[in-house]
C-alpha cells in the first residue's frame, strides 16, 4: 500500500454543520472517503492509502482541484482507495463535501 498525504490552506470553513460523513465503498475501481470537521477552518488535510503505486502526482492534482473548488476548510479527509480512477475520486470528494454542507 502506498500512503500519501496532502495539506492545503483554505480561506475559511466549509459551510454546514455536519461533523462527519462517509461516502463510497472500498471496491475495485472505487474508494471510500471519510470527512471529519476537526481541523482549523483554514486548513484541509487529505490522507490516502492506495494499492496502486506511482500515481502521487495525479492524486496531488485531483486534490488541489478539489480544494480549489470545494474550499473544504476545517476538514480532515481520509481515503481508502480501491484503485479508483481520478474522475471517480473527484466525484466522490465532491459528494463528500456536499454531505458535509447539510
Amino acid at each position: 500500500m502506498e500512503k500519501l498525504s496532502f495539506r492545503h490552506a483554505t480561506p475559511g470553513p466549509l459551510p454546514g454543520r455536519k461533523s462527519q460523513a462517509i461516502t463510497g465503498v472500498v471496491a475495485s475501481g472505487n474508494l471510500e472517503i471519510l470527512l471529519e470537521r476537526v481541523l482549523e477552518p483554514t486548513v484541509c488535510t487529505v490522507e490516502i492509502e492506495t494499492p496502486i503505486r506511482g500515481y502521487g502526482d495525479v492524486w496531488e492534482a485531483v486534490i488541489a482541484d478539489f480544494v480549489a473548488r470545494a474550499r473544504p476548510g476545517g476538514l480532515r479527509i481520509t481515503i481508502n482507495d480501491g484503485g479508483a480512477r481520478p474522475d471517480t475520486v473527484s466525484l466522490r470528494l465532491l459528494q463528500g463535501a456536499r454531505l458535509m454542507e447539510v
Binding site: Q20, V26, L34, E36, E49, T50, P51, T78, N80, G82
Partner: peptide, 21 residues
C-alpha cells in the same frame, strides 16, 4: 464503533489489500 474510530482489519495490510473504515 463508527468509521471515525478507524477500527480496520489488522490483517489485510499483510496481503497488501486496502482496508475499509
Amino acid at each position: 464503533v463508527g468509521p471515525e474510530q478507524r477500527r480496520m482489519s489488522p490483517h489485510l495490510p499483510l496481503f497488501d489489500l486496502p482496508r475499509a473504515f
